[in-house]
Deep mutational scan, measured.
Amino acid sequence: MAASAHGSVWGPLRLGIPGLCCRRPPLGLYARMRRLPGPEVSGRSVAAASGPGAWGTDHYCLELLRKRDYEGYLCSLLLPAESRSSVFALRAFNVELAQVKDSVSEKTIGLMRMQFWKKTVEDIYCDNPPHQPVAIELWKAVKRHNLTKRWLMKIVDEREKNLDDKAYRNIKELENYAENTQSSLLYLTLEILGIKDLHADHAASHIGKAQGIVTCLRATPYHGSRRKVFLPMDICMLHGVSQEDFLRRNQDKNVRDVIYDIASQAHLHLKHARSFHKTVPVKAFPAFLQTVSLEDFLKKIQRVDFDIFHPSLQQKNTLLPLYLYIQSWRKTY
């Protein structure tokens, strides 16, 4: 089996927390979720979201995140109150960019949308954001926290390059993509939290790379249903696996070995980020709550012996909000 052949990389499970039942964490995340308004986002309300009498641009960002990046939404709820709305805006910006690729039928249209967001970032730093909910909220975040323009532009530029429907040539190319998107998002989150620390940035770099790799793995069944495969070609070739094997949902050992190798790289990034947690300011830990969902996925895929098409991998963990709150309460990542 794939797991038994390579099992030495995987460390002990961390979500089991001995003695936790003896201490009762304060009510927090679930209460916040219940208090949030929840009407559906419609095209009509989106168009009017920044106008008078609408929910408001902040509510639009929150709803977009809740629907399109639920794990990011849950993590954002546990940030300090003064930072929450800015991170909602930042993550909503990322969602807007991420959904361009799947929402257009022609690359030219995707490039036009990316050009809109490039100009939007430029206009935000000229205090002239367009009348668009996410743009307005992002402008507020930039003004409030003096966010670095370079990180925002890196996210747009990398998403634009990724409009080509090509597999990553190697794991390094996937890591570079993750660094310029997910890690950049974390650098900006640290700025919102008021953290300027080399060790925190180092952790953000590795956690962002782990996030990018896990996202690529999780999306494999969806991409396969659209006749697309984006997994690193070098690892596929190493194990003699073709793109057609993934399109046919082949579950042979060599296919699972490909998934094992890729998942192991995410695991190593996560492990390395945690190896120097004592040197990272505690104030930075809330920015890294996504490690909970990353670890949850890596454990699940290990349990199914790296069968990327196993139905259990597509099921939401209903206990994730609780695990996130516990992680926040324990002040760790």
Rank of each mutant, 00 (worst) to 15 (best):
R303Y: 07
T120G: 07
F306N: 04
A135S: 08
G72Q: 12
A54R: 13
L298I: 12
L77R: 02
F276H: 06
Q132K: 07
E160K: 14
D58L: 08
T120Q: 08
S184W: 00
T189L: 15
D307Q: 06
K196V: 06
H59N: 08
V104C: 15
Q327F: 05
H310L: 01
V304M: 06
F230I: 13
K283Q: 14
R303P: 01
L324R: 03
E295F: 07
Q99C: 11
H277A: 14
Q315P: 06
K278S: 09
E160M: 08
K172S: 13
A287R: 01
S76I: 05
S264V: 13
L64Q: 08
K316V: 02
F276D: 05
K196A: 11
L111V: 13
L163S: 06
A204C: 05
R91V: 02
G208V: 01
L163N: 05
A210K: 01
R227I: 07
L74R: 02
K107S: 14
R113S: 07
F309T: 07
E179C: 02
K316N: 09
R84A: 07
N146G: 14
Y325T: 12
P311T: 09
L74W: 03
S205V: 03
A81T: 15
V255R: 07
S275R: 11
F306Y: 07
L77H: 03
N254C: 15
E295N: 12
K253G: 15
R169V: 11
D245W: 05
R144M: 11
Y73F: 15
C61E: 03
L78P: 10
W117E: 02
K228L: 14
V87D: 03
S264A: 15
T291F: 01
R150Y: 13
D201Y: 04
I308G: 00
D123C: 07
F276K: 06
E191Q: 15
R249D: 08
K299Q: 10
I195A: 08
D197W: 02
L190E: 01
E179A: 04
W55I: 15
T181K: 04
K299H: 13
D123R: 09
F288I: 00
H267V: 09
L198E: 05
F306R: 01
N128K: 14
I171C: 09
M153R: 13
V134R: 02
E173Y: 03
W329C: 10
W151T: 05
A98R: 05
Q115M: 06
I207Q: 01
P133Q: 09
E244L: 04
W117A: 05
E137V: 02
F285P: 01
H223F: 14
L186A: 05
H145N: 10
L319V: 12
L186P: 01
K271A: 15
Q314V: 06
N254W: 05
I235V: 13
V241M: 06
E63G: 15
N146E: 10
R66V: 06
S264D: 06
H277D: 12
I308K: 03
F230R: 07
I195W: 02
Y325D: 02
V46C: 13
Y323P: 02
A284W: 02
I235A: 08
D201F: 05
E295V: 10
H239T: 01
L231K: 00
M233S: 08
Y125V: 03
N254L: 09
F309W: 12
H199D: 06
F276N: 05
R150V: 07
V292Y: 12
I235G: 02
I171V: 14
Q290W: 10
L163Q: 07
P52V: 13
I155P: 02
A47L: 04
S86Y: 07
Y125R: 01
M114P: 03
L65H: 02
W117Y: 09
L320Q: 07
R330L: 10
S83M: 13
H202P: 00
K331D: 09
A178K: 00
D157S: 13
H223Y: 14
F309D: 01
D165N: 08
L64H: 08
A200Y: 00
Y60S: 05
L217N: 00
Q243A: 05
I301L: 14
I109Q: 09
V241A: 13
K166N: 11
L270T: 01
R144D: 05
C126H: 15
I192Q: 02
N162G: 14
S205H: 09
A284R: 01
T120K: 03
R248H: 05
I207Y: 02
S312M: 10
I136C: 11
P232E: 00
A219C: 07
H272L: 14
H272V: 08
N162T: 06
S45R: 06
P129E: 07
V214N: 00
A204W: 02
G56I: 15
Q211C: 15
L270E: 01
F306Q: 00
V255E: 04
H269P: 03
A266I: 03
Y222C: 09
S183H: 01
I207G: 00
T120F: 09
N317D: 15
P52I: 14
V282R: 08
Y325W: 15
Y333I: 06
G208P: 01
C61A: 11
K166I: 13
P221W: 11
W55Y: 13
E137I: 01
S86W: 03
A135T: 05
H145V: 03
D58F: 11
